[in-house]
């Protein structure tokens, strides 16, 4: 093997990428090769410097912010898709029900203009999102986070994006689905944990065991329960979900909390939720049994272990 190849093997050895045979071959060569020994020492020093100056790992707050921004972007994308889908469905329906190819061209042109209006006008600026409907009163708009994508002095053209923030005052009833929708969005996107707790509490007040919940509210509560980094918010979300008619999704959420939440208080609340559901006649499925078995063995909270064991015992008796 050429000397250069051994230099590469040294690097791979230090990166833990060599097989046992290659390692043996390298060691054998290095015994007699002072140049490779020096290379080994030099590379060891280099890797130590690189290793010592690694960038910090991603912290939870950073991750939480990224998730929140992504959810907002996804909401926007979905709403945009919905508008486009609606328009295309209308066009399809029109073509299906009406004849007269003469009008087809004119209609297509109009539809194109409408799509362009929605996609590029409201989509690009987002300025007219709230215009005072539903008791909302828009305040002064603040433009922040301007980022230039391109700029061409010759053609006098700029291409940039920005966040347009406007304070809106709203007054209405918590039972109003529109108000619930906005609060559900706030629960997922609000940065202030205190505000999120207040929001989830307000939503919880509207939840009733006998009433079908607003799906948007339910999604937001589930998302908060699973992914909010504030235990107070998660606790309130759990309480609210347990007030809703019990179903598989809520059951899955309780299992998720039992398996992943580091807060023992929340795990206790989750296992109490499962117990209550069982008392109310809910059947315990296989997945729940698996999680309970796992909890009996592994959970570091004694109450959770005892409660899981007791649920399993009751299930076996039946």
């Amino acid at each position: 093997m050429e000397h250069q190849s051994f230099k590469e093997l040294i690097q791979l050895a230090l990166l833990n990428e060599l097989s046992d045979d290659q390692m043996k071959e390298l060691h054998k060569h290095m015994i007699d090769c002072s140049r490779c020994q020096a290379e080994y020492d030099s590379l060891t020093q280099y890797f130590a410097v690189i290793d010592k100056n690694k960038p910090d790992s991603v912290d939870e707050q950073f991750l939480h912010d990224a998730r929140r921004q992504f959810r907002t972007k996804l909401d926007y994308e979905l709403s945009r898709q919905t508008v486009i889908e609606k328009i295309f469905h209308s066009i399809q329906k029109y073509f299906w029900l009406n004849k007269g190819a003469v009008f087809t061209g004119a209609f297509s042109l109009a539809a194109g203009l409408v799509i362009g209006y929605f996609v590029f006008s409201s989509g690009a600026t987002g300025m007219n999102f709230f215009t005072g409907e539903n008791g909302g009163r828009a305040g002064k708009q603040i433009i922040t986070n301007v980022r230039f994508l391109s700029s061409d002095a010759a053609s006098d053209e700029v291409n940039f994006v920005f966040d347009a923030v406007r304070q809106v005052k709203m007054k209405g009833k918590l039972s109003d689905p529109e108000i619930q929708k906005i609060l559900a969005d706030a629960l997922v996107n609000e940065k202030n944990p205190g505000a999120r707790i207040t929001t989830v509490s307000a939503l919880a007040n509207q939840v009733s065991e006998n009433k079908a919940p607003n799906p948007k509210v339910k999604d937001a509560l589930i998302s908060a329960l699973k992914y909010d980094n504030n235990p107070g918010v998660r606790r309130e979300a759990l309480k609210a979900l347990l007030e809703m008619p019990y179903d598989n999704r809520i059951n899955d959420c309780l299992l998720f909390v039992l398996q992943h939440d580091k807060n023992s208080g929340l795990r206790i609340a989750a296992i109490n939720g499962l117990t209550l559901a069982k008392m109310n006649g809910q059947a315990i499925n296989q997945e729940t049994l698996n999680v309970l078995n796992q909890k009996v063995k592994n959970d570091d909270n004694e109450y959770v272990r005892i409660r899981a064991a007791s649920l399993l015992k009751e299930e076996n008796i039946q």
Partner: peptide, 11 residues
Amino acid sequence: DAKDIYQEVFL
């Protein structure tokens, strides 16, 4: 920029 990349990836 990392958050921008994150959003673009998941989109």
